[in-house]
Design a protein around this nucleic acid. Structure first.
Length: 506
RNA sequence: GGCCCGUUCGUCUAAGGGUUAGGACACCACCCUUUCACGGUGGUGAUACGAGUUCGAAUCUCGUACGGGCUACCA
C-alpha cells in the first residue's frame, strides 16, 4: 500500500504571518494537492512566554483568506492530533529519555548563568560564539561529566535540567535535499542542542522529529534558515525511528527585502505590506497593514508569492490556484533567494483585477463603498460601473476614487481647472447642451457623443476644449473613464443636474 | 571566526555543452486616447572574477570575490 503524501507547516504564534511564511505554506499546500495528499497545520506554541494570544486565530484567518486551508489542524481536527504542541507535551519526554538510555543524549544541569559564564570565558576573536559541544562538555555539569550517582542525586532532588543531544565525534551526516541535492555536515562542529527544555517542553528539534513521525509526515518543507540544524534532525531520525522512515526534506530559499533578509520592519520602512493581513504587534501596539487590507486579491497574492522562486518553465506568469496546483513541481523551485519587488506585486494585482469578472468583485467593491457611507443600490448599476473602471484599478481600494461619483455627486468640483479657459461662448454651449439633452429621446453613449460634437461644430468650438470642462462637471476632476460612458450611466436627469450645478459655480 | 546555502539585465526569471542569452516588472520613446489609465510598437539593460575540462561553457570542475543564513532552554 502506497503511503499518501502528507506535508506539514508549523508556524509559531509569536508574530504575524509574513511573506516568507505564507510562501512556505503555499509550496507545502501546492505540493500536497499536486500529489493528492494532505496539508497539515501544526502549531508550535512551545514557549509560552513568547506565545501571543490571538496569534493562532490570526494564522487561521490568513490561511482562510488566501484559500490555503489545511486538511488537519487544531481547529479542523484529524486522526493524528492533537496538533497544538502544548497539548502534546507528555509525548516528548519519553523519546528524550529513550535517547539517554541509548547513549545518544544526556541530562545537563547547567544554569543560564553557568552557560553565560562559559560563553564569556571562551569567547575570543577567533571564536565569537562558543558552543556547548564536545570540547566543553566535560567541564560542565551533566550526566556525562558527573558520576552516575551524582546525576541520580541531582535528578532525585528535582534540580532543573534539560536534555541535550550528544553529537557524535567524527561523523558525516548526509541527506538529500529535494531542491539542493546532497548536503553534508561534519558532526564534530555541530553543538549539543537542547532537546527538552527545563520546563518539560520540547525544542523545535525534538518536536519536529517526533511529530513528523507520529503524524506520518512524508515530506518536510521549510525555510532555508533551518538547513544548519538539519543534521540534528537527521541524527534524531536515525536514533529514534530509522533513516528509512524519514520524510524527504526540502529547504526553500529566503525571501529578501531591499537590504538583505526581508524583515517585518521593512514594511514600514519601505512602504509595502509584509504580512498577509493587518498585524498589530502586541508589544508595541504598532499596526502593520496587510496585503488584504491594502487591497490585494487573494488570487493575486498567492500568484505573486508562487512566482517568487518558482515558475513552470514557460512564459506564463498569471496562474489561478487550480493551475498552480496542477503545474507545481518542487524541481522547479529555485535554490537562490529572491528579492521581493513591490512594483511587480502591484502588477500581479492589477492583472487579477482586470481579469476578474464584475460579479466576483462586486461584494468587495460594495463593501468598500458602503464602508465609506455611500449607498450603492442594486447590483446592476454596480456591475456596469465595475466593468467600466476595473482596468484602471491597481488595488481593490482604488475602486472608491474611480467610481464613487456614480453613486453620489462629487464632493468638490475642480473649477480651478476650468476657469483659465472659460468664456461666455463655452457657457452658452453648455446651456444649449442642457436643452438638447433634455429633449433627448434616447440616452446612449454614441448618441450623446454625436449630439455633443454637432453642437460644438455649430458653435464653431473644438470638442476637445469642451470635453475637459464636461468631465469636471460630471466627476469633479481630471480623472475617470470616458465622459460619454459616464454620462450614459449617470442618466439624463443626473447629467443635466451636474452641468447646471457647475455652471452656477463658474 | 566557524559551518552551511547561494550568484544570468535594477528586480523576478528562461536557456539541463552549440540561441543574435528569451520573457515579465520597472524605466525611456513612439502610437492610440482631446482626462487618467488600459492597450499596441520599439528601446536601454545581464551570465561576479580567474583558471581548468571540451572542437565548443551561462551550463561541468576547482579557486577567489560577493551576498545570505545559522552559530539560544526562539522558531
Amino acid at each position: 500500500m502506497s503511503k499518501k503524501v502528507r506535508v506539514r507547516f508549523a508556524p509559531s504564534p509569536t508574530g504575524g504571518l509574513h511573506l516568507g511564511g505564507v510562501r512556505t505554506v503555499l509550496y507545502n499546500y501546492l505540493f500536497a494537492k499536486n500529489n493528492g495528499g494532505d496539508f497539515i497545520l501544526r502549531i508550535e506554541d512551545t514557549d509560552q512566554s513568547r506565545y501571543v494570544s490571538g496569534a493562532e486565530q490570526y494564522i487561521f484567518d490568513c490561511l482562510k483568506w488566501a484559500g490555503l486551508e489545511p486538511d488537519e489542524s487544531p481547529v479542523h481536527g484529524g486522526d493524528y492530533g492533537p496538533y497544538r504542541q502544548s497539548e502534546r507535551k507528555e509525548m516528548y519526554r519519553q523519546y528524550a529519555e529513550q535517547l539517554i538510555k541509548d547513549g545518544y543524549a544526556y541530562y545537563a544541569f547547567d544554569t543560564p548563568e553557568d552557560l553565560e559564564k562559559m560563553r564569556r570565558d571562551l569567547k575570543t576573536a577567533d571564536n565569537p560564539s562558543p558552543q556547548y559541544d564536545k570540547t566543553v562538555r566535560m567541564k560542565l555539569r551533566n550526566s556525562i561529566s558527573l558520576l552516575p550517582d551524582e546525576t541520580q542525586q541531582l535528578l532525585a532532588e528535582g534540580i532543573r535540567h534539560v536534555i541535550r543531544i550528544k553529537m557524535p565525534d567524527n561523523e558525516t551526516v548526509s541527506f538529500t535535499d529535494m531542491i539542493r541535492g546532497d548536503v553534508h555536515f561534519d558532526t564534530s562542529i555541530v553543538d549539543d542542542k537542547v532537546l527538552l527544555k527545563a520546563d518539560g517542553m520540547p525544542t523545535y528539534h525534538l518536536a519536529v522529529v517526533v511529530d513528523d513521525h507520529l503524524m506520518k509526515i512524508t515530506h518536510a518543507f521549510r525555510g532555508e534558515e533551518w538547513l544548519p540544524s538539519a543534521p540534528v534532525h537527521i541524527l534524531l531520525w536515525k536514533y529514534l525511528f530509522g533513516l528509512r522512515n524519514m520524510p524527504q526534506w526540502a529547504h526553500f530559499p529566503l525571501i529578501l527585502g531591499p537590504n538583505g533578509k526581508l524583515s517585518k520592519r521593512d514594511g514600514a520602512k519601505y512602504g509595502f505590506p509584509v504580512f498577509a493581513m493587518n498585524w498589530t504587534d502586541p508589544k508595541t501596539n504598532e499596526l502593520t497593514e496587510g496585503f488584504k487590507e491594502k487591497g490585494f486579491l487573494p488570487e493575486a497574492f498567492i500568484n505573486l508569492l508562487a512566482l517568487l522562486g518558482w515558475n513552470d518553465g514557460t512564459e506564463q506568469e498569471i496562474f489561478s490556484k487550480e493551475e498552480l496546483i496542477k503545474k507545481f513541481s518542487i524541481d522547479r523551485v529555485h535554490s537562490g533567494g529572491a528579492k521581493f519587488d513591490y512594483e511587480k506585486a502591484k502588477w500581479f494585482n492589477h492583472e487579477w483585477i482586470k481579469k476578474s469578472e464584475a460579479g466576483s468583485l462586486k461584494t468587495e467593491v460594495r463593501g468598500l463603498l458602503e464602508g465609506k457611507g455611500i449607498s450603492v443600490g442594486g447590483d446592476s448599476l454596480l456591475e456596469k460601473v465595475i466593468v467600466l473602471v476595473k482596468d484602471r484599478c491597481t488595488f481593490l481600494t482604488d475602486f472608491y476614487d474611480q467610481c464613487y461619483f456614480f453613486f453620489q455627486s462629487p464632493a468638490t468640483i475642480d473649477t480651478g481647472a476650468i476657469q483659465p479657459k472659460w468664456d461666455e461662448k463655452k457657457k452658452l454651449f453648455f446651456i444649449e447642451l442642457i436643452r438638447l439633452y433634455e429633449l433627448a429621446s434616447v440616452w446612449q453613449h454614441d448618441d450623446l457623443e454625436i449630439a455633443f460634437k454637432e453642437l460644438a461644430a455649430a458653435n464653431q468650438l473644438k470638442p476637445g476644449e469642451l470635453m475637459l470642462p464636461f468631465r469636471i462637471m460630471l466627476v469633479g476632476g481630471k480623472f475617470g473613464p470616458g465622459v460619454f460612458d459616464i454620462a450614459s450611466i449617470l442618466g439624463n436627469e443626473e447629467t443635466i443636474s451636474r452641468i447646471k450645478k457647475t455652471l452656477t459655480l463658474l
